[in-house]
Amino acid sequence: MGLLDRLDNPYETGGIILGTLEDILNWGRSKSDWYLHFGLACCAIEFMSMNASHFDFMRFGIIPRATPRQADFIMITGTVTLKMAERIKVLWEQMAEPKYCISVGSCANSGGPYWQYGYHVLKGVDRIIPVHVYVPGCPPRPEAMEEGMMKLQSLIDRQAIFRKREKLAENENLIKSNKM
């Protein structure tokens, strides 16, 4: 699916890649995502090692940003309390389109261990903002977060920029016929 994979194509040898403008734009976007990190609990501790040299998150072409206005996606890592949920909503709305969200860990996905008696915990960050990739785990290993990042990249790669509605309808038909 990636643009560089087409170099294997026998018709496109000689250093020339044929592609649509959409492919090239998506290729650029998916390989230079800037992110706003929202660390809340132990998942954020795992995320520290993501940024350190061993797992080296920046090799995905991403750069941490301190402000939502420069960020392409937000990483919610940890337990979202009701008090913090309102702040997350504000940050999300400050981000510029196109924007994405990765929810990391059981707490951000569904409330995690606080699902029953957590009177102060939002049972899943998808109740207030749309989530594009869920990373399961309690907390997830850095490899799982890398997998989540790759999922987000492939999601951006497939995204329609032109003729959005037609392509969305096409996708829905594919999903209905179980071809995807």
Binding site: G111, Q116, Y119, H120, L122, K123, R127
Partner: peptide
């Protein structure tokens, strides 16, 4: 909340609290 007879609220600022 730490009193034994505490009941968690149904919503808080429009967000549903129970699972």
């Amino acid at each position: 909340p730490l009193r034994k007879d505490y009941k968690e609220p149904e919503t808080y600022h429009g967000m549903r609290v129970p699972y």
